[in-house]
Design a protein around this nucleic acid. Sequence first.
DNA 1: ACCTGAACACCGTTCAAGT
DNA 2: ACCTGAACACCGTTCAAGT
Lengths: 194, 194
Amino acid sequence: MRTTAPSEELDCPGGARRPLSCDRIVGAAVAFVEANCLAQLSMRRLGSELGVEAMSLYRYFPSKALLVDAVVCRVLGGLELPAETATDWEPAVRAYARSYRALARQHPDLLPLLAADGGARATATEVEQRMQALWRRAGLTGDGPRRAQRAVQAYVIGSCLQAPAARSEEAEADFELGLEALLSGLRTRLPLSS
Amino acid sequence: MRTTAPSEELDCPGGARRPLSCDRIVGAAVAFVEANCLAQLSMRRLGSELGVEAMSLYRYFPSKALLVDAVVCRVLGGLELPAETATDWEPAVRAYARSYRALARQHPDLLPLLAADGGARATATEVEQRMQALWRRAGLTGDGPRRAQRAVQAYVIGSCLQAPAARSEEAEADFELGLEALLSGLRTRLPLSS
DNA sequence: ACCTGAACACCGTTCAAGT
DNA sequence: ACCTGAACACCGTTCAAGT
């Protein structure tokens, strides 16, 4: 799912400043949000992080909103999706759920944006399609794949948004219990193979 | 769960302007967010909505963040919680889930804040306690009540955050399927009565 | 082609001043 | 006691100008 190379902040030989690019800007924005928080991300601050005036960023992104969308897409690119040939749905869905959770814990500030109906919808829809294909290979038809995936996605996102329980192993165990409950409920309710 | 009377915007007899109060400010903020959106809520605009300078609001709320917390608490107050005596957990949990969903659909902008770990945590914890008490009456002990409630809460919040499916009855059916799957999974995994 | 400076219309918030 | 005005340090964004 990763479609762009990670943008490394290497200096050009001779110390000349590398030119701006969408990739470099998004990389810097992700790093900034990880190091600080989304609320502190401003065009001015991001510009100064890149050694450039805020206004220069507008050559690459017409608005801050579109830049943030690109950041969300980049982060979603880190998701581990099931192989196109996977048919054993249970381990594949568990792996997806845990991958999403890991990603959410790495970018807690971005999570509300991952879930929201924003400009990253295209990428989110791509992810949804890949997961629905898995559910189809597992035997579901019609509304089945969408419903199964939406249920899993809802649970996973909601879990990540919740205030962490006291100890982190506790939170992990809570997450796993709910996930297994949901999967077993889906198994008994939907005509899934195996 | 509603602890404060709804603040009606009635003029005083004689047309004299009613004095400001926390209640009146929160009421106006909720109305503003419903009528516009959270992003447009500013101290200046809210002030002008109340016929007052922005700075006056600081007499009642030391910061915008605390005002928003109060808004979130007010909205959470609209939740239908199970009676303290309810023991039949399934219909009570369904009613809670649907009540939460209804509230989320009425205040889509506030939903991320309801889920987040913000200043409304006290109220959210209160809700959680009430629900955990229900799970305890249903036979759960130890980690059980917390886990059951966190699973339900995760699913409900995540569902509400998801982009609505094409048709709204479709979204409703998707929500119900996942809810029933989760509840039945919890039923088989936890020592619940009935 | 790519970046900058100054400017516009906003923010949250502080503080001294009004009544 | 309660509200206001002016000010500070920020925003996103436009636009004309630099190189």
